[in-house]
Design a protein around this nucleic acid. Structure first.
Length: 947
RNA sequence: GGGCGGUUAGCUCAGUUGGUUAGAGCGGGUGCCUUACAAGCACUAGGUCGGGGGUUCGAGUCCCUCACUGCCCA
C-alpha cells in the first residue's frame, strides 16, 4: 500500500505538460457521460443554456473558444453550486454555407455540377459530406472540455427538428403571418438565391456616375439622367424629377425615347417623364431613371405610379432580353457595351468617379442584384411587438445593457423577413402548387388534393427552402421536444424552458437572438404552463438573460481574417500553451464591452500560472510524504479544522500570547482561511454578473499572490515533524491540504483539466478514494465555508509589512543575500512589537533576520524605515551611499508633502468639513496625521544623513 | 446620413452608486540557481486619467464641447 501511495504521490511530473493530461480527461468526461442531464435528474433548480450552434461546415475559431469558455465556466460553476446544469450542444445545417462548400468541392473534383447532379443526388451528396466531416467542430469542442450534455446533441436537419420547422411554418401560414408574393429582394447571382437584408454587407467603393442623355420622343431636346448602373437602362420604365425642381417643370408629362432599347430591329421604347419626391435635385442632374425590377427604390416609385416592372436579368445576372444585342451578356459586360454604344451615339455626356455603397452577399461575396421575384415572407410586426414587450417588460435582460438600445433600434425599424431561399440544402417549404388552378396548399404532410380546385394529380411541391435562421430561431423550444403532443408541454419543456441564459456575440444579435425572441414569444405563449395555467410573456421568452461578449481580435487589434493572414487558430495555440492557459487568458480578458486583443504574452503568463499550481501541488505532496514518514496521515474532507469552523479571539489585533504555542492554530492558517472565504465571495459576486475577468483575476491573485507567495512560504517554518509536540505541524499540514483542495475547486471552472488531474492525484497522495468521479461534480467553495478572521488578516498584513520593509532595507544596504542580520522594531502599539517577536522564526525565514529586538524609542535615519504602524531598523555595517540615500529621501519627502498639502487643503475647507460625510473626514484626518508623521521621519533621516 | 462605444503607465487592459495617496498583467531596472516552481523569487522605477469648459465641499467617474478612433444600421 505504501508503495502504491509512493507511486501516486510521484505521479506529478516535474514540469507541467498540458498535452499529457488534457486529452486524457477530455476523453474521460465524454466516456463517463459526466455531464449528461436526463430530465429525471432535474432537482430543485435547473440552469439551462443553449450553445449557439456552430455551422456544420465550421472549424473552431477564437470566437467559438471565447464563447465556449464563458459558457463552460458558468455551466461548471452552476453545476458545482448543486444546480442541474444543462448545456445543450448542436450544429446548424447552415444552408448557403454548406451548399456552397459542397459545390466548390464538386467543382474542384471536376465532377458534374449541382444542376447536372439534380436535387436529390446533390442533397444526398451533402448528407454524405455531413456524415463524414460534419463532426469536426464538435470534436474540437470535446477537446476543449466543454461540459455539454452530448446525449442531447442535435443537428438542425434531424427528423424531429425538421418536423418542428414544418409545424412552425404551417402555423404561421394558418395565422396569416406568412405570405408569398413578387417583391424586390436581395439576389445573390452566384448562389442563385434570395437572401435577407441581414445577409447583405455594405461596402464603400468608388464607382462611376454616368450622365446619359435621353432624347425627347417628340420635338427637339433631351433630358440628361445620372446613373451608377447604365446597364439597367434596358429595364427603364420612366424618368423622374423632383416636383419642386423648376429646371424640369416643363418636361414633366412628356416622353423620352429609351436609347438602345430596340429589340429584333424594332422601335426604341418610349417612356414618360414623371414627378416624384424621391428624385433629389442635388444628385447628378436631378433627373433619374426608373428601373422597378432592379432597384428597391425604383420599385417603390413604380408602385406609386402604376408602372410595369420588366425584368432584364436572369438568375445569374445576365441580360435576358430576347432580340436585344445585349442578350446573354453578364451585367458588367453589358455595362461596358452599353456605355460604349451610348458614347458612339453621342448620348454619353459625362462619366465621374462616384463613391457609393455596394451591397455584397455575406456568404458568396458577390455583388447583390436587387431582383423582382416570388418569395415567401413573414409578416414580422406582430412578432416584433411581443419581442419588444418582452425586453421592455424586463423579462429578458441584456448584459452589457447597452445592447438593449441596439435591439430596440433594430426592432423598431424591422422589415418583413424574406424566409425563402432558392437552395437545395435546407428545410423545404411545405407548400404545394396546383398546376391546374395555381392555388398554393400549405400542409404538414403532402396533400392529396388541391385545397381549392380539388385536383389530385397536378400538385408540385415548392422548390424553395427556408432561411437557415428560421430553424435556428426555433431551437430554444424545439430542442425540448416542441411541438407538444397532447396539448401540454413536454417533460423537457417543463424542466428547462425558458432557458436561463444565452451567451453569444453581437454579430448574431439580429440574425439569431432577435429571431429567437420573436419566435419564442410567439409560439410559446400558446403552450400552457406545467400546472395548466396560461403562459405569460415572462414565461414564454426563450431565455431570461443574454450575455453579449466581445470580439476576439489579433494582438494588433486588427480583426482576424484569412486575407490578412492574422488568424489565430485555437487548436494551434492550445497545442503550444494548453487549453487551461488559453481558457484562462480569454476569461481574464473578457471585460464587457471591450474587444479582446488576444495576447500570446498573456497566455504565456497563464501557462506559467498553471505551472505554478502544478508545482504547488508537488510541494504539497512532498510534505504529505514527509508527514507520513513522521507518522501522520492526512485526511481530506473528513473533519472540519478548528480554524475553519470559528475564528479565534476576533478582537485581538496581534500579539496573540498563544501564537505558536502548542495547540493553537497558527496565524497564517487563520489568515489563509479568511482569504479563501474572501476570494470565494468575490468569485461568486463576479460570476453572477458575468465579470469573468474579475473572477479570474481574483483566483489568480489569491492563488499566486497569497497562497503561493505568502502561505506556502510561511508554513515552511511550521512543517517541522518529529518534534516532541508537533501539533502545529500536524494542524498546518492538514490545513494546507484542505486549503489547496478548496483552491482547486475554486479554479476548476476556469482550468478544468489541470485541476482534475491534480485533484485526483491529491486524493491518491493522501491515500483516500476521491469522493466523486470528477472535481466537476464536487461543491464549489462558498464564502461561508470558511471563517473570515479580521484579526488574523490585520496581524498578517502587519507581518507582511515588516517582512517587506526588512527586505527592502537589506537591498538598499546591499546586505549579502545569505547573510542574516539583526532587526530592531519600534511601535507605539506594543502588540506590533509582540507580533514581531512572536514571529521571529518567520522573520528569520522570510527576511533573513537573525534576531528581533524591541526598541524603546522611535527609529529613524540610515538603515531604518518607517510605516504608519512601526519603525524598523536592520543592523548592518555598511558604507552609506550618501547621494543615493539623499535622493531617495528627498523624493519621498516631496511625495509625502504633496499628499499632505492636498489633505490639509481639504481639511481647511469649511464647505468640505460641513458637507462631506463623517467617515470621509475622519479618514482624511487620519491620513493627514500619518502622512505628517512619515514626512517628519523622512526629514529627520535626511538631517541625520547630512550631519 | 442615423445610432452606439472607446481614449487611464512603454504595451494590453481594470477602475462599482462621485469620496481618503488611480490598480493589474506584460515589458523595463537591480539582485538572487533560497530543496515546489528560473515557466521561478525578492526589491524597484514608471501615470497633468485625450484637450478645454462646467456642476460639486470633492470628478478618472456626472454634464457640455472639441479632437482622434472603433463598431452597428441605412
Amino acid at each position: 500500500m505504501s508503495e502504491d501511495r509512493q507511486e501516486q504521490s510521484n505521479e506529478l511530473a516535474k514540469a507541467y505538460d498540458p498535452s499529457a493530461i488534457e486529452e486524457k480527461w477530455a476523453a474521460y468526461w465524454v466516456k463517463e457521460r459526466l455531464f449528461d442531464t436526463p430530465v429525471e435528474s432535474v432537482g430543485a433548480k435547473a440552469f439551462t443554456m443553449l450553445l449557439p450552434p456552430p455551422n456544420v461546415t465550421g472549424r473552431l475559431h477564437m470566437g467559438h473558444m471565447l464563447n465556449q469558455t464563458e459558457m463552460d465556466i458558468l455551466t461548471r460553476w452552476h453545476r458545482m453550486l448543486g444546480e442541474t446544469a444543462l448545456w445543450v450542444p448542436g450544429t446548424d445545417h447552415a444552408g448557403i454555407a454548406t451548399q456552397m462548400m459542397v459545390e466548390k468541392q464538386l467543382a474542384a473534383e471536376g465532377k458534374t455540377s449541382r444542376v447536372e447532379l439534380g436535387r436529390e443526388a446533390f442533397t444526398e451528396r451533402v448528407w454524405a459530406w455531413k456524415r463524414q466531416y460534419g463532426g469536426a467542430i464538435t470534436d474540437q469542442m470535446r477537446r476543449l472540455g466543454a461540459s455539454v450534455d452530448w446525449s442531447r446533441e442535435y443537428f438542425t436537419m434531424d427528423e424531429d427538428l425538421s418536423g418542428a420547422v414544418v409545424e412552425a411554418f404551417v402555423r404561421l401560414w394558418e395565422q396569416g403571418l406568412v405570405y408569398r408574393g413578387a417583391y424586390i429582394v436581395n439576389w445573390d447571382p452566384v448562389m442563385g438565391t434570395a437572401v435577407s437584408d441581414l445577409e447583405v454587407v455594405h461596402e464603400e467603393r468608388v464607382g462611376k456616375l454616368y450622365f446619359v442623355r435621353y432624347p425627347l420622343a417628340e420635338g427637339e431636346g433631351s433630358i440628361t439622367i445620372a446613373t451608377t448602373r447604365p446597364e439597367t437602362m434596358l429595364g427603364d420604365v420612366a424618368v423622374v424629377v423632383n416636383p419642386t425642381d423648376e429646371r424640369y417643370t416643363a418636361l414633366v408629362g412628356r416622353q423620352v425615347r429609351l436609347p438602345l432599347s430596340a429589340v429584333s430591329g424594332g422601335q426604341e421604347r418610349v417612356i414618360p417623364i414623371l414627378a416624384d419626391e424621391w428624385a433629389q435635385p442635388e444628385f447628378g442632374t436631378g433627373a433619374v431613371k426608373v428601373t422597378p425590377a432592379h432597384d428597391p427604390n425604383d420599385f417603390a416609385i413604380g408602385q406609386r405610379h402604376g408602372l410595369p416592372s420588366p425584368s432584364i436579368f436572369d438568375a445569374q445576372a445576365r441580360v435576358s432580353l430576347a432580340g436585344s444585342k445585349y442578350d446573354g451578356m453578364d451585367r458588367y459586360a453589358a455595362r461596358e457595351a452599353i456605355v460604349a454604344d451610348l458614347d458612339a451615339l453621342g448620348l454619353l455626356v459625362e462619366v465621374k468617379d462616384h463613391g457609393m455603397s455596394v451591397g455584397l452577399s455575406q456568404r458568396s461575396g458577390s455583388v447583390i442584384e436587387p431582383r423582382l421575384s416570388d418569395q415567401w415572407f413573414i409578416k414580422i410586426q406582430p412578432l416584433a411587438d411581443k419581442a419588444i414587450a418582452a425586453v421592455k417588460g424586463g423579462h429578458i435582460r441584456f448584459t452589457p445593457e447597452m445592447y438593449e438600445k441596439t435591439y430596440f433600434e433594430w426592432m423598431g425599424n424591422i422589415h418583413d423577413w424574406c424566409i425563402s431561399r432558392q437552395l437545395w440544402w435546407g428545410h423545404r417549404i411545405p407548400a404545394w402548387h396546383c398546376v391546374l388552378c395555381g392555388t398554393i396548399t400549405v400542409a404538414r404532410t403532402e396533400p392529396e388534393a388541391c385545397s381549392f380546385c380539388g385536383s389530385t394529380i397536378d400538385l408540385v411541391q415548392e422548390t424553395d427552402v427556408l432561411d437557415t435562421w428560421f430553424s435556428s430561431g426555433l431551437l430554444p423550444f424545439t430542442v425540448f421536444g416542441w411541438p407538444e403532443t397532447g396539448g401540454g408541454p413536454t417533460a423537457d419543456m417543463r424542466a428547462f424552458y425558458p432557458t436561463d441564459l444565452l451567451v453569444t456575440g453581437f454579430d448574431i444579435l439580429f440574425f439569431w437572438v432577435a429571431r429567437m425572441i420573436m419566435l419564442g414569444t410567439h409560439f410559446m405563449l400558446d403552450v400552457p404552463m406545467p400546472d395548466g395555467s396560461a403562459r405569460t410573456l415572462a414565461e414564454a421568452v426563450p431565455f431570461r438573460e443574454v450575455y453579449i461578449h466581445a470580439l476576439v481580435r489579433a494582438a494588433d487589434r486588427q480583426k482576424m481574417s484569412k486575407t490578412k493572414g492574422n488568424v489565430i487558430d485555437p487548436i494551434d495555440i492550445i497545442g503550444r500553451f494548453g487549453t487551461d492557459a488559453v481558457r484562462f487568458t480569454l476569461a481574464s480578458m473578457a471585460s464587457p464591452g471591450t474587444d479582446i486583443a488576444f495576447s500570446e504574452a498573456r497566455t504565456e503568463g497563464y501557462r506559467a500560472f498553471a505551472n505554478k499550481i502544478w508545482n504547488a501541488a508537488r510541494f504539497l505532496f512532498m510534505n504529505v510524504e514527509r508527514g507520513r514518514e513522521a507518522g501522520y496521515a492526512v485526511a481530506l474532507g473528513s473533519q472540519v479544522s478548528e480554524a475553519r469552523s470559528s475564528p479565534q479571539r476576533a478582537s485581538s489585533l496581534a500579539g496573540d500570547p498563544e501564537l505558536g504555542a502548542p495547540g493553537s492554530v497558527p496565524l497564517e492558517t487563520r489568515w489563509i482561511y479568511s482569504r479563501l472565504s474572501a476570494v470565494a465571495a468575490e468569485v461568486e459576486r463576479a460570476l453572477a454578473v458575468y465579470r469573468f475577468d474579475e473572477a479570474a483575476g481574483a483566483v489568480y491573485q489569491f492563488f499566486w499572490g497569497e497562497f503561493c507567495d505568502w502561505y506556502l512560504e510561511l508554513v515552511k517554518v511550521r512543517l517541522e515533524f518529529g518534534r516532541e509536540d508537533d501539533t502545529v505541524a500536524r494542524l498546518t499540514l492538514e490545513a494546507l491540504v484542505e486549503v489547496y483542495e478548496a483552491a482547486l475547486r475554486l479554479l476548476s471552472p476556469f482550468m478544468p483539466f489541470l485541476t482534475e488531474e491534480i485533484w485526483h492525484a491529491l486524493y491518491a497522495a493522501v491515500g483516500q478514494e476521491a469522493p466523486a468521479k470528477s472535481i466537476a461534480l464536487t461543491r464549489f467553495p462558498l464564502a461561508a465555508d470558511f471563517a473570515r478572521d479580521e484579526a488574523a488578516e490585520a496581524s498578517l498584513s502587519l507581518l507582511q509589512e515588516l517582512i517587506v520593509s526588512v527586505r527592502a532595507l537589506r537591498k538598499e544596504m546591499s546586505v549579502p543575500e545569505k547573510e542574516p542580520a539583526p532587526m530592531l522594531v519600534y511601535s507605539r502599539d506594543i502588540r506590533v512589537v509582540e507580533l514581531a517577536i512572536a514571529n521571529a522564526d518567520t522573520l528569520a525565514k522570510m527576511a533573513r533576520v537573525s534576531s528581533v529586538s524591541a526598541s524603546a524609542e522611535a527609529l529613524s535615519g540610515s538603515g531604518s524605515k518607517s510605516t504608519v504602524s512601526f519603525d524598523v531598523r536592520v543592523m548592518y555595517e555598511r558604507v552609506i551611499d550618501v547621494p543615493a540615500e539623499r535622493e531617495r529621501l528627498t523624493k519621498e519627502m516631496a511625495k509625502l508633502e504633496k499628499g499632505l498639502l492636498a489633505s490639509q487643503r481639504q481639511l481647511g475647507n469649511d464647505a468640505f468639513m460641513a458637507k462631506a460625510p463623517a467617515h470621509i473626514v475622519e479618514g482624511l484626518k487620519k491620513q493627514a496625521a500619518e502622512t505628517g508623521m512619515l514626512y517628519e521621519k523622512a526629514r529627520a533621516a535626511l538631517l541625520e544623513l547630512e550631519a
